[in-house]
């Protein structure tokens, strides 16, 4: 193939210049991958000899023998908010409030982190770089770690969950929003600037209509993700139904745990479906 070009003194097109059979880069990549996997399996020392299928089967059966005590208050001190439905609702609301909180902060920051809005002045260019680095750092810290740290600050409970989740989300939503702003068509803004409108009017009239739908779509996507994450946060001190699930497992109350897991699956699946429907409408 390549010889066709060489014999005629032509440069070889990039796509034809490689031979998959003799290309040492490909073989090298494959060899390294195999080596890494081999070392990984050795180091991890994956041991299945201690597995106890009979015991596990017993647990699974208990998980399916739901104990409905957790659905209603069990004594005079308990209210609806101590029951599983109450804690489930608390957890959903935790995801919603955390999303709203992060939206409130990410929204203005996103404009400061959009290149097409901020380039021009050296000062705004510096702000842009700073905001984008901030988003990256905030985003790169896993939610669970943030909630653990916040649980140390605020104590165990919803505060750690809400603020931890919101913190992480500022980074995620901020980046998504910024990229949506960067992706707009500059033409309408140019045209409206030409009419004599000022910057605020241009953003309001030409930028907002272009970013509104993507913003709503990203927000719903994050709401979905946050409601999904919220139950897990209870395991590390974030409050809500996750905390109850954690406790029941610790106490070997698998009949209760099973019902809680089912409720979580139900909520997550509903959210997933609803969010997909709404976002399909928006695109």
């Amino acid at each position: 193939m390549a010889s066709y070009f060489r014999s005629r003194g032509l440069p070889v097109p990039r796509e034809l210049s490689r031979n998959p059979l003799t290309d040492w880069q490909r073989w090298g990549t494959l060899a390294v991958t195999i080596a890494v996997l081999y070392v990984g399996v050795k180091v991890l020392d994956i041991d299945v000899s201690r597995a106890n299928p009979q015991y596990a089967w017993g647990v699974v059966r208990k998980l399916l023998e739901w104990d409905f005590d957790i659905m209603t208050p069990q004594n005079e001190y308990e209210t609806f908010w101590d029951t599983s439905p109450g804690l489930m609702l608390t957890t959903i609301l935790l995801g919603v409030v955390a999303t709203a909180l992060s939206l409130l902060l990410a929204l203005p920051l996103a404009f400061l982190g959009a290149r097409n809005i901020m380039t021009g002045h050296p000062v705004t260019a510096v702000i842009y770089t700073f905001v984008r680095i901030l988003f990256t750092i905030v985003r790169s810290i896993d939610v669970l770690i943030v909630v653990i740290v916040f649980a140390i600050i605020f104590g165990l409970g919803s505060a750690a969950g809400v603020f931890g989740l919101a913190f992480h989300n500022i980074g995620v939503l901020g980046k998504l929003y910024s990229e949506a702003i960067e992706g707009i068509d500059p033409g309408p803004g140019e045209a409206i600037t030409a009419t004599g409108a000022n910057r605020v009017q241009v953003i309001w009239t030409a930028v907002l209509p272009q970013i509104f739908n993507p913003f709503v779509s990203f927000t719903i996507y994050r709401l979905d993700a946050n409601v999904r994450l919220a139950p897990v946060l209870g395991f590390v001190g974030g409050g809500g139904i996750g905390q109850q699930l954690f406790q029941t497992i610790q106490l070997f109350q698998y009949q209760k745990a099973g019902l809680i897991i089912f409720m979580i699956v139900l909520v997550v699946a509903t959210m997933d479906f609803a969010s997909a429907q709404v976002r399909k409408k928006l695109s």
Binding site: D185, P188, E190, A191, T195, G196, T205, Q210, N213
Partner: peptide
């Protein structure tokens, strides 16, 4: 901006806000 008001402009790509 007052000067720009007196100068209209139209564009090859029309530059309308498409969703509006």
């Amino acid at each position: 901006r007052r000067i720009r008001r007196r100068i209209g402009m139209i564009f090859q790509q029309f530059n309308l806000v498409r969703r509006s």
